[in-house]
């Protein structure tokens, strides 16, 4: 097997400087074997280019061409915008009616505003630290009872865990809020109001803003 000259590839790719090119051509004249090797390599590269062209041709034939886009007439744009605006007005009106009804129905409000934490517990289900935090388990249990409509039992459990002082500050805020939701479900609106007034004394409470709004509506 012939050993290719190091400059053969550069010569065929036109990468030699003019002086290097002259020197290499002189060398080819003096060594017919080298000249033949260069000719063979040139033909080999031509064959590879054919391969590349075939592959590219196939790719381009399967490449979708983007046809020029037609710009819709202004008239039809106006119609689309009108329909969209009508939908927005309808949604806004429905939202207003729904919110007004919610304000009047404290039970429904409580149902919609119970703070869910079971997802949090589920993601930490394998955590052995949960064994230690039995209080939090009870806290979640209270929420399950709420969801099952057992408001009295839920309230009892919420108050129990609240009094244990084992809850984290975040869970304590949630418990405050959920206790109020239980009272609303049990139609103890006066009790709920008292608790809300107590809650808004703490401006750093997580449910400070919601509590103020709820108080205004009750």
């Amino acid at each position: 097997m012939e050993i290719p000259h190091p400059n053969t590839e550069k010569y065929l790719k036109n990468l030699l400087s003019p002086s290097e090119k002259i020197a290499f051509e002189k060398l080819m004249n003096e060594h017919p074997q080298l000249a033949e090797d260069v000719t063979n390599e040139k033909l080999a590269l031509e064959a590879i280019d054919l391969l590349i062209a075939d592959e590219l041709r196939a790719t381009l034939k399967n490449t979708p061409r983007e046809e020029p886009k037609l710009i819709p007439l202004k008239k039809s744009n106006f119609r689309k915008w009108s329909i969209a605006a009508s939908f927005l007005i309808l949604i806004a009106a429905a939202s207003y009616v729904f919110t007004s009804q919610q304000d009047l129905d404290s039970e429904q409000f409580a149902h919609n505003n119970i703070v869910l934490v079971e997802e949090d517990i589920a993601t930490r289900g394998d955590d052995s630290s949960l064994e230690i935090h039995a209080t939090r388990k009870e806290f979640v249990q209270a929420q399950l009872l709420f969801q099952q409509g057992k408001y009295q039992e839920a309230l009892k459990l919420y108050q129990s865990v609240y009094d244990s002082n084992d809850l984290s500050p975040e869970d304590k805020d949630i418990a405050d809020w959920n206790i109020i939701m239980c009272h609303l479900k049990l139609k103890s609106v006066a009790e709920a109001k008292t608790l809300l007034q107590e809650l808004i004394k703490d401006q750093n409470h997580y449910y400070f803003d919601q509590s103020r709004l709820l108080l205004d509506k009750l």
């Binding site: 097997m1 012939e2 033949e36 090797d37 000719t39 063979n40 390599e41 033909l43 080999a44 064959a47």
Partner: peptide, 13 residues
């Protein structure tokens, strides 16, 4: 592979 192709070129040219 390049050497092999050059051999083919030598034969086919």
């Amino acid at each position: 592979c390049l050497q092999k192709l050059k051999e083919k070129a030598k034969f086919f040219k």
